[in-house]
Every structure is written in C-alpha cells, then in structure tokens.
Simulated scan of single mutants.
Amino acid sequence: MTDMRLDERIARHRSELSPQERRAADTLLAHLDDLATYRAAELADLAGVSKATMSRLFRSLGFAGFDEVRDHLRTLRSAGLPQRVDGTPDMEAIAANEAAHVAAAVSQPRIGEAIEWLAKAERVLILGWRGSFSVALQMRHQLVQARNHVTLGPFPGQAVGEEIASLRPGDVLVLYGFRRRPRTFGALLERAASTGAKIILIADPTALPHVPLVDLWLECQVETTLAFDSYSAPSTLTSVIADGVLSTLGSAAHDRVSRIAGAYQEIGEVE
C-alpha cells in the first residue's frame, strides 16, 4: 500500500472504517489540496472527531502518524502532483527561488550549441505534453518568426508517430519533457534517435534517465513550494534560445520578420 495515494487508501479501506473514522476521512479528502498546512488536532476539530479517532484513521491507512502523512504528500508533490505542503506562501522566498532557477537555466554552457543547431536545421519539430506543451507552443511561436519549417505537436487527435517518422538527418527535435511525462516518452526518444535527427531535451532533473538518448540536455527546475509547478525558467530559456536563433540568422531572419509583419497588416490579423 506504500505506493498508493492517500485518496486511494481511503477508497480501499472505507468499508472497514468506523462511522467516526469515515467522517474524519471525508475531512481529509475535502482538504486534500492543502492538507499538510494543518495540524492533526485542527483536522480532528474540522471533522468533529477526537484526536484519538484521527490517529486511528492514520494507522488504518498505513501511516504511523500525521508526520508520515506529510512526508507522503511531499513525495507526491516532488512527483508533480498539485499539493500544498507548506503554510502561507512566503512570496519573497518564492520570488528568490524563481530568480535562482531562471539564472541557472540561462547560464548553461550548451545553450550556444542549441541555438546553432536550430538556426541551421532543415526542419524543426517541437513536442511537449501537458504542462510542457505551453512552453513548446511558446518555442514554436517565437522560432517561427525567425525561420520557416517549424512544426509543433502533439495537438488533440495528432499521432506523434507520424511526426517522428518524418524526421531525418539535418532536422532537430526539441522535446520539452517535464515531470509527469507520458509513459511512451522513452520509446519515443529511442525511435527519434534512430532517425539521425539531433535531439534537444529541455526538462527538469526527473528526466535524467532519458538523457543518454539525446544529443543535448538543458536542465530547468520547475518545482516550487506552491501547489503547482512554475515554468518561468523554461519560458525564459526558450526566449533566450529563440533570440539567439534570430541573431544568428541575421538579415534572413529580419527579412522574415518584416514579411510576417506585412502579412499581419495586409489581412488585419493583429492590432
């Protein structure tokens, strides 16, 4: 049962719980997103049960006590599940943490290689899933201003295999692979590596097992003390890379920017 989430444990053992323990369990479920911000006594008060009942519930669910519940929630958070594990957020500490993550992301020595590959590639394919897709979309939006033949995926209903099958030597695949990746991520990388295209992986440290399959890895931290991951570091790194490609391509890129701006104006697409 150690691999089961708290809500799964409650569902599994609900029929075995006393009426008071079920009331306590319902309170845990109602506060699952910020459970670790409470003390055990506060949870007991919220449920209208005794502290002893709350303690019995924890033991019935496989925990020695509320400290183990907190550790369990921190483990879930480190795996990417939205969980509040601290009290009132310290905004100054959060801002400092974000700044440190951004600084680390944009100071990596191999960024220049990534820029050169993306500037010279025949075609660029950018892939991202779940939270990673928003940064992948940013990369496509910015990179397509500087060069042509930039493709993004996967969109709803799109099979990634179709895109991977089109890769060949001279192309570059940019993979955004932050935690809670799809189960097929490793197999996709193996297939992409066999095409001869260069592979750039932009991901947090949980992607380390996949690094041997790629040509270049750029690390970005996304973990915060908040319930959700932050993509400020990946977003800033993406802008730095796109800016570098624009600069590397020089007049060709600036001519493209002018043509795009002219197209916007002619069809009245943007203000």
Score class of each variant (00 low, 15 high):
158 Q>V: 11
117 W>R: 13
83 Q>P: 00
125 L>T: 07
134 S>C: 05
81 L>R: 08
151 T>M: 12
113 E>D: 15
117 W>F: 07
162 E>W: 09
156 P>H: 03
150 V>P: 02
108 Q>H: 07
72 H>M: 06
155 F>W: 12
85 V>F: 04
114 A>N: 02
113 E>M: 04
114 A>C: 14
134 S>G: 07
123 R>S: 14
163 E>S: 15
69 V>Y: 10
88 T>V: 15
138 Q>A: 14
137 L>M: 09
132 S>C: 13
90 D>T: 02
109 P>L: 07
126 I>L: 14
135 V>P: 03
156 P>R: 13
116 E>Y: 00
89 P>A: 06
148 N>W: 03
94 I>R: 04
75 T>H: 11
135 V>F: 04
99 A>Q: 15
72 H>R: 09
162 E>G: 15
152 L>V: 01
74 R>Y: 11
91 M>R: 14
140 R>L: 05
149 H>I: 00
78 S>M: 12
91 M>Y: 15
72 H>K: 10
70 R>F: 01
124 V>W: 02
146 A>V: 05
132 S>L: 04
106 V>A: 06
129 W>V: 12
73 L>W: 02
162 E>T: 12
126 I>D: 01
147 R>K: 10
144 V>F: 01
110 R>S: 08
76 L>W: 09
115 I>L: 04
122 E>D: 15
79 A>C: 06
85 V>A: 07
132 S>W: 09
118 L>Q: 09
141 H>R: 14
100 A>L: 09
109 P>F: 04
152 L>Q: 10
118 L>R: 03
94 I>T: 08
142 Q>T: 09
116 E>P: 00
103 A>E: 09
74 R>D: 11
151 T>R: 11
110 R>T: 05
